[in-house]
Design a protein around this nucleic acid. Structure first.
Lengths: 236, 236
DNA sequence: GAGAAACTGTGTCTCGCAGACACGGTTTGT
DNA sequence: ACAAACCGTGTCTGCGAGACACAGTTTCTC
């Protein structure tokens, strides 16, 4: 990161620097981020280039550098712009319902903007909206006997699961989609090497509802958390 | 993917095509993959280019294309080469111990080759070794009342968790490392916006053992699986 | 009011990358 | 012997990120 981290923090968190002299800027960070999101939604994150984003706004590539230090910061803005607002916890709902709703909404975000998976790998500065997601999980678990680090770990656990599911469902894609070739290829490979992978071969041969993966993992995690909470609240 | 998928499958799974005429190839897929891993280990996946990999082998960039159709396939080979062999389940150990060992070893793989996180996002063809990891989880869960899809979902759940933890631990890095700046930046941001994120602020303020995240999530998942298994085996 | 300072958008340039293609040299089958 | 198949290479195109200098515009200061 180095110095770039400071720039990114200022961009995502800081007060919008208000220069006084010179011509009025013709663009805004919001418009730039929105254009980037548009490109990424349509053609994937790899297709996002300064050229294309600038072209979409009828500007030249270099003009973007007046607003954004570099491509990494542009993507950080895109993430912050594309991520949904986390759901407000309904009044009187328990931690389990809150976390279930949270996971569903996060999965929706990933489904709407699959490139978020690519954009959020690796160390980076998180934005205000992204941090709000974390806040919701941690606060949903407040007051149930978990330590602070444990609440954070639980958040990482949940987020990791939703991510994993989103990655999987992007890879397979909706039935009949071009990405579904992935499943075909996988099926052929399994068929030819069933002897080396008997357990997997048997598991995929067995019929059963697809698309249950999110709920399945979620229920296991929540059951596991419930067991811990029960133990903690039973013996204070 | 398109046609490229077939090439990749042949490369990862297929019998090494043996041409008869012409000069002996001076390189092997193994050496090429190893050189790529070397570059990625040292400078990250982004630094892996045909130029650099070829240069490491004292060949020109274009000669690599005689062995590998393109960069995507090179990275697929690198993944298959860098991933460890999954641990063989010790005799007489239960599913819980097997899955614990599995997770620990997978986490080690990610720790040894952090770029695996970048290389394994998105749809792609899995190789034999990678599939062996899946086989181990599914077979560890054989015979405990779970359906095939459920066993697969459990594998995705576990793998997603290990991935998430690996991503987090790469972001923060070992104490004192350059990446630890991430934590400093995060701390400063939290300090300045504690009012908007009270739950997170409270959680991080609370002291407690770091690096427990892998085990914490793992124990929750395994507890959740245990509950399901108990329910299933109690009422056949 | 007149500079000067600061800022904006732009054209040009360099560098690195992926990949297409054609070429000469080499090995083997017929 | 000769042709087919294959190897390694040099060259070329196109695309991308980013540095830099430049002209035009707005505002602060004297």
């Amino acid at each position: 990161m180095g110095e770039a981290a400071n720039d990114t923090v200022r961009l995502l968190w800081g007060p919008p620097a208000k220069p006084t002299r010179g011509p009025k800027p013709a663009l805004t960070l919001e418009r730039i981020a929105a254009a980037g999101v548009e490109v990424a939604d349509a053609e994937g994150l790899a297709a996002v280039s300064m050229q294309k984003v600038a072209g979409l706004l009828d500007f030249t590539k270099m003009s973007l550098y007046r607003y954004v230090p570099g491509k990494a910061e542009l993507i950080a803005l895109m993430v912050e712009s594309a991520v949904d607002e986390p759901p407000r916890p309904a009044e009187g709902t328990g931690w389990r319902e809150q976390l279930t709703a949270w996971s569903g909404h996060l999965a929706d975000s990933f489904a709407r903007h699959p490139w978020l998976l690519d954009a959020t790998v690796g160390p980076r500065v998180v934005g205000p909206k992204e941090l709000t997601w974390l806040e919701r999980v941690v606060s949903a678990l407040d007051g149930h006997g978990l330590t602070g680090p444990e609440r954070m770990d639980a958040a990482v656990l949940l987020a990791g699961h939703v991510r994993g599911i989103a990655a999987q469902s992007r890879a397979t894609g909706p039935a009949g989609s071009p990405e579904a070739e992935f499943l075909t290829v996988f099926g052929l490979v399994m068929q030819q090497h069933a002897d080396r992978y008997p357990a997997v071969a048997a598991a995929v041969a067995e019929p059963g509802g697809r698309d249950q993966a999110l709920d399945f993992g979620l229920e296991r995690i929540l059951d596991g958390l419930a067991a811990l909470i029960e133990r903690r609240t039973a013996q204070p």
